[in-house]
């Protein structure tokens, strides 16, 4: 073969000394960074001070602090809320797994071509249309109270299972749409290249389209998972004691809302590491495939 590559070998740098121009440029950048940092710090301090003053000086602050930020009730509520949280986490894990698999399946079904698959396509589309539009709370009510009302033998009455089922129904519809957007974002030329190699349409989907589609939709998928995590609280409609309901029990007994604040902060604390983790995954995937740049 006549072609030979010039390998990317670095030329030895010899006696390179940074020019005065470069040094001046770097001095300027450092100065600009210091100035930006100072401005940001000052403006943050001022904003925080204004907010704190506004809240603390408000006429109802004393009362509000006792009702929402009461250390006694926080201590009282924390173990019960954490107990309830265990239910939320289990629901998140199980429903999350079901939703990802089922959503991917529905999305793939919706992309099938040809008249043979019309009924499948139509069913999948109808499912997504219906459950994406149906408010989650109504879906849960239907499931938790409607299914037991049928008095079917062998079907559970457990509000956790029925509530989880309703969560899966709704979130599968959302997630299917996210996956479908990912699938359609893969350029047709990728499909053409795969088919021209003799891959069947199923192989093309599995080895070429889906890997690229899934990578692209990781951030929106995480968004839906965080949302699902919060909505697991809605199974309390049927009487299951999750973190929110555990807080509510104390709050309505003692007329103190501190347990809600505790539960809310715990939810926030769980989602933040999840978000950072996905950002990290996305950054790693991009770094591996593409060349870097400054913008």
């Amino acid at each position: 073969m006549t072609v030979r590559d010039e390998q990317d070998e670095a030329v030895p740098d010899g006696t390179y000394e940074p020019s005065p121009r470069r040094l001046a440029r770097e001095r300027y950048r450092r100065a600009r960074t210091r100035r930006a940092f100072a401005v940001a710090a000052a403006s943050s301090t001022v904003t925080a001070a204004v907010l704190v003053t506004l809240i603390v000086e408000s006429p109802g602050w004393q009362r509000t602090r006792d009702t929402f930020l009461n250390a006694h009730y926080a201590r009282l509520a924390l173990p019960k809320v954490l107990d309830g949280l265990w239910l939320n986490l289990r629901l998140l894990a199980v429903c999350g797994a079901v939703v990802l698999v089922a959503g991917l399946l529905i999305a793939v079904l919706r992309t099938l071509r040809g008249p043979v698959f019309f009924p499948v396509r139509a069913l999948a589309t109808a499912y997504v249309d219906f459950f994406r539009g149906l408010p989650l709370i109504i879906c849960i009510l239907m499931s938790v109270f409607g299914i037991p009302a049928l008095r079917l033998s062998g079907v559970t009455n457990d509000p956790v299972l029925l509530g989880g089922f309703a969560l899966c129904l709704t979130y599968t519809a959302y997630v299917a749409e996210v996956f479908r957007a990912g699938i359609e974002s893969v350029h047709p030329s990728q499909r053409a290249a795969a088919r021209s190699l003799g891959l069947t349409s199923a192989q093309t989907m599995r080895h070429v389209v889906l890997p690229q589609a899934v990578r692209r939709v990781v951030p929106p998928l995480l968004n839906d998972l965080v949302s699902l995590q919060k909505d697991t609280g809605l199974v309390s409609i049927g009487g299951a004691v999750d973190a929110v309901y555990a807080a509510q029990i104390i709050a309505s007994r003692d007329f103190n809302y501190t347990p809600y604040v505790v539960a809310g902060l715990i939810f926030v604390a769980i989602t933040i590491p999840l978000t950072r983790f996905t950002d990290w995954i996305a950054a790693r995937m991009n770094g591996r495939q593409a060349q870097g740049g400054t913008v």
């Binding site: 030329s189 990728q190 053409a192 290249a193 088919r195 021209s196 003799g198 069947t200 690229q212």
Partner: peptide, 20 residues
Amino acid sequence: QDAVRRRIGVVFQAYNLFPH
């Protein structure tokens, strides 16, 4: 058709390599 395409190679203007 898949069996036919297996016997034909194609090279595209825009390469169409699989980026992943």
